[in-house]
Amino acid sequence: MPEGPEIRRAADQIAEVLVDEDITQVRFGLPRLRRYAKLLRGHRVVDVETRGKAMLTHFDHGYSMYSHNQLYGLWRVVDGHKLPKTTRSMRVLLQTASHSAILYSASDISVMPTGELSQHPFLAKIGPDIMNTALIWREVMERLQSPRFSRRELAALYLDQAFLAGNGNYLRSEILHDARIDPRCKPAQLTRGELGRLARSTLTISRRSYDTGGITLNPRLAKRLARTSLKREQRRFYAYGRTDQPCYHCGGIIRRSEANSRGLYYCSVCQNA
């Protein structure tokens, strides 16, 4: 599933071709949504926003389209109106005079008045968006210390969208590794210094992934590995997907375990509480 950085990059790509443009054609692949095509057609997109893993396309007449990629959803932006050949099911098509934005495969889509978005079942329960540039590390630290979250294992907490929206599986492993925190720990067990380090890593890693298109390594290490024979997928992460390989920080071995039915990767040395 795409995580916060990937959804934000997709939103930026869509905004580049849709914002301040009149939507000349609207099509929905799901029958329950087809009645909204006429409602949106002919109106102008004013903003494309993300809240965690959800995308909100806002129109100038006070309506918004909510979409969540779920596991298999994918946005594509193409020049002109000729659609790509694909076996995927088209769910949404938004066209301007010069471009097409297409959402494939996703089914969690709705259209509603912008003023009612806070009542949407998903949006009503999520926490702050990790890609929101106004979010600072002290706010993340406060959430880690709050009674609601402080006694939960970090391995589970860092997948909970009510804690921070946009976190996901690879970010969980990478953030905890960068902060040198054992995934089995609970925030209540950490020192104030460790909490601060974890809060900073939460924002640093997620925003670095956005800036680099999915690489969480620090720039110096990323450049060094780029000069090797490793393929890009093999040099993106500190821990995620690197089972039995040496830790870049301490030389310990990266281990894999299951947490919340998903792979969790950590260093057996520098993340051992």
Rank of each mutant, 00 (worst) to 15 (best):
Q145W: 10
W75R: 09
L18F: 00
Y210L: 15
L144M: 02
Y238K: 11
R35F: 07
A222I: 01
L30V: 11
V78E: 13
H81G: 13
R76Q: 13
H177A: 04
D47R: 13
D60W: 01
E21M: 10
L93S: 05
A199F: 01
K125N: 11
H81V: 11
G241M: 02
G42Y: 00
E116S: 14
V269S: 14
G241L: 02
E16V: 00
R236L: 14
D211V: 13
H68G: 02
Y240C: 08
L93F: 01
P183C: 10
H249C: 15
A11W: 01
M141K: 15
A97S: 06
R232A: 02
A134G: 11
I181Y: 03
S89T: 06
E233S: 14
L217V: 06
D244H: 04
H58C: 06
D22K: 10
R27F: 06
L74Y: 10
P246V: 14
L33G: 01
E16C: 10
A11E: 01
S64R: 09
L203C: 00
Q119H: 10
A124C: 06
L117T: 07
E3H: 07
A134W: 00
R91Y: 04
I102M: 06
Y36G: 08
Y104Q: 00
S110H: 14
S268D: 12
A165T: 01
M90K: 12
T212L: 04
R262H: 09
K85G: 14
R9W: 03
D20P: 04
T243C: 13
L93Y: 08
L225T: 06
Y266T: 12
I205R: 05
P128M: 05
R192D: 14
T96Y: 00
R184F: 15
C247N: 03
L225R: 12
L264E: 04
R76T: 05
I205L: 11
G241P: 05
I130P: 10
M65L: 14
R172V: 08
Y238I: 15
I126T: 11
Y238E: 12
Y170M: 04
Y248D: 11
G127R: 04
N272Q: 09
P183F: 08
A155Y: 08
I253Q: 12
H68C: 04
Q70V: 05
G251C: 12
R255L: 11
L18G: 13
R152N: 07
C247S: 07
L159P: 02
D129F: 04
R76D: 11
P113V: 03
D129Y: 03
S150L: 14
A10L: 03
S257P: 08
E258V: 05
Y72P: 09
G115R: 03
R172P: 13
D211T: 15
F122L: 12
R143Y: 05
R255E: 10
S268M: 06
R227L: 09
A226C: 09
D79Y: 11
L176V: 08
Q95R: 10
N218Y: 04
H81C: 10
D182G: 03
A162E: 13
N169L: 08
H68K: 00
A155D: 09
V48S: 05
G73C: 00
R192K: 15
L123Y: 07
E139L: 14
R91G: 01
V140Q: 07
R180C: 11
D182W: 12
D22A: 11
T202W: 09
M55D: 01
T191R: 02
D160H: 03
L154H: 03
Q13L: 12
D160N: 07
K82D: 15
A15V: 07
R8L: 15
P84G: 05
Q119V: 15
